[in-house]
Design a protein around this nucleic acid. Structure first.
Ligand SMILES: [Mn+2]
Ligand SMILES: [Mn+2]
Ligand SMILES: [Zn+2]
Ligand SMILES: [Zn+2]
Lengths: 144, 144
DNA sequence: ATCATAATTAGAATAATTCCAAATTTTGGC
DNA sequence: GCCAAAATTTGGAATTATTCTAATTATGAT
């Protein structure tokens, strides 16, 4: 697993020409830079609008193509809340998502130390989990 | 909270004329009977097709209206897997969903006894959770 | 029965995403 | 560097789940 998590305000040039076996084209770099730059879980359209700032010729289809490439190579994560449009998250560590219903903002939520999913769920023996998504909504705590 | 969970192969007539403050119209009864009858987490269109058997005049718009009414009155639950169409579940007890990638079938998964969400997640103090969805995908265990 | 309100219906509209076919860019071999 | 093949990008069309609209029908209260 790569670790791009610490890269704040990244420039597209910061990325090598290949990542996780995926060719890093100009557009893919730009899309990745957008997602790493402001970690607010943007939608595809958000990414499109932001990417156009530095790359006015990029198309929405390309943004979707890039997102799909980045997700399938596990460079970014796709995040879903019910039937809302998908959002994208550069945090590759184990975590889930909480949406504050007042602000609409999405927060990363990490698991407590040492907890394993199997400790929580009655899963039949031999179950192999390939994908897990936990999404919460509610009122974010005022205190930190 | 009502408990319709034990009702197997229900007839629309089994339901009272009002449930959880919701008027039980012919169509709402039929939609609910479909969801309780075969507990395979049908999509809206699945429900529509099945409902038409006994009520050939029902419309898809009505199925959507009924589902929205039943969900908002907490008589059934809406279940989402990534960007797939929503599915509907009559099990009102606390549980989450596992989709077997081989068969596509969705299984209810219950939480182990006594576990609380706050034991698993680093949530800021004062967080109020109004909605929670946990969706898993993978290979279902061959052994029971 | 009358009236007001709520629910149903068919079809149109919406919107996120995917598909398509053409144009462009990149790559690797020479 | 030049060329052919392969990969990527692009604009626009297509898809599809869901929502909306406006007309019709059913319900419940008086
Ligand atoms: Mn995912
Ligand atoms: Mn829900
Ligand atoms: Zn995240
Ligand atoms: Zn269920």
């Amino acid at each position: 697993m790569i670790s791009l998590d610490h890269v704040h305000d990244p420039k597209p040039e910061d990325f090598p020409s290949e990542l996780e076996g995926l060719r890093m084209t100009k557009q893919r770099r730009e899309v990745l830079a957008v997602i790493l730059g402001e970690r607010d879980h943007p939608t595809a359209n958000d990414v499109f609008v932001r990417a156009k700032d530095r790359m006015p010729t990029i198309s929405l289809a390309t943004v979707y193509n890039c997102l799909e490439a980045l997700v399938s190579h596990q460079i970014v994560r796709q995040v879903n809340f019910e039937r809302e449009s998908s959002r994208y998250c550069p945090n590759l560590s184990d975590h889930c998502h909480f949406q504050d219903e007042e602000s609409g903002k999405i927060h990363d939520v990490v698991f407590k130390d040492g907890v394993k999913l199997e400790d929580f769920l009655e899963l039949p023996q031999g179950t192999e989990i390939s994908h897990l998504e936990i999404s919460l909504k509610g009122q974010f705590g005022t205190q930190k």
